[in-house]
């Protein structure tokens, strides 16, 4: 498995799209952080970029990559090796290279130009989201045979989590605002990895304002380490569950 990770990683690190992605992120990070003498504002811009583009680009690139590598995957599978090892190795190499792109493009400029826990959290968020959405891409790959269909679904998933989900949630919150729905809302948030990532950042940037709301649950959830632990744990599930599902499906998949 390590062998496959190593060589696929060597391939991906020279991949033009990944290089381009890294450069674009770096340019964005440096320009956003450099223009303003106000680091918080730059941090927020980068948060928006991260929440919007990292999921979309990760899931699209990963889906396309998995479908394009299908013949190579078959060749690897014809060697004496367990099926799930090939799959997990390809996933690892892919997600590590995309995370590296993010860490180099956004993480390093951020940590150099803006000190503080927020920079660290944002870098962590970007990497976690990369893991989540490449994991989802893998699930798309094992679930569907057709590449075009897979790409369509990848875009739909990214769009759903970045925009539609929040729209529905806001509608829900508005229509049931007279009821004690805090707990339900926290529960619902767990079903969107992008929201979880955002909340993780919110807990550090806006804890003062969050403390201003009287909901006991919010205070308990958002005010202490519990909120962060909850968010990270849920994001981890968003990585692990699609991965396990993918392995299960892949073990029975006809190539």
């Amino acid at each position: 498995m390590k062998t496959i990770i190593k060589y696929v990683l060597l391939d991906l690190l020279r991949n033009r799209v990944i290089l381009f992605y890294t450069i674009i992120l770096a340019v964005l990070a440096v320009s956003v952080l450099g223009i303003d003498d106000n680091p918080t504002k730059g941090l927020l811009s980068l948060l928006n970029i991260t929440l919007l583009f990292v999921p979309l680009i990760t899931i699209l690139f990963s889906t396309i990559y998995f479908f394009n590598a299908i013949e190579f995957t078959e060749l690897l599978l014809s060697q004496p090796i367990k099926r799930n090892k090939v799959l997990l190795a390809e996933y690892s190499a892919l997600t590590v290279s995309l995370s590296t792109a993010y860490a180099v493009g956004i993480g390093i400029p951020l940590l150099l130009l803006v000190s503080g826990i927020e920079s660290f959290i944002l870098t962590l968020i970007g990497i976690l989201l990369t893991f989540v959405f490449s994991s989802l891409a893998l699930l798309i790959f094992v679930k569907f045979r057709d590449k075009t269909k897979g790409i369509g679904i990848a875009i739909a998933i990214a769009l759903f989590f970045t925009l539609l989900f929040d729209g529905f949630l806001l509608a829900f919150i508005y229509s049931f605002s007279d009821y004690p729905i805090d707990q339900a809302v926290v529960g619902i948030i767990a079903f969107n990895p992008i929201d979880l990532a955002r909340v993780l950042m919110l807990l550090h940037l806006d804890v003062a304002v969050l403390m201003g709301y009287s909901g006991a649950l919010f205070k308990k959830f958002l005010g202490s380490a519990t909120g962060s632990i909850f968010s990270i744990a849920c994001i981890m599930l968003w990585i692990i569950v699609p991965l396990l599902l993918s392995v299960r499906i892949f073990n029975r998949k006809d190539l």
């Binding site: 928006n48 929040d166 806001l170 919150i173 605002s177 929201d195 955002r198 950042m201 304002v209 009287s214």
Partner: peptide, 10 residues
């Protein structure tokens, strides 16, 4: 107040 959980989203 609950809507605060969506703050800073797209």
């Amino acid at each position: 107040p609950t809507a605060m959980i969506l703050y800073r989203s797209f």
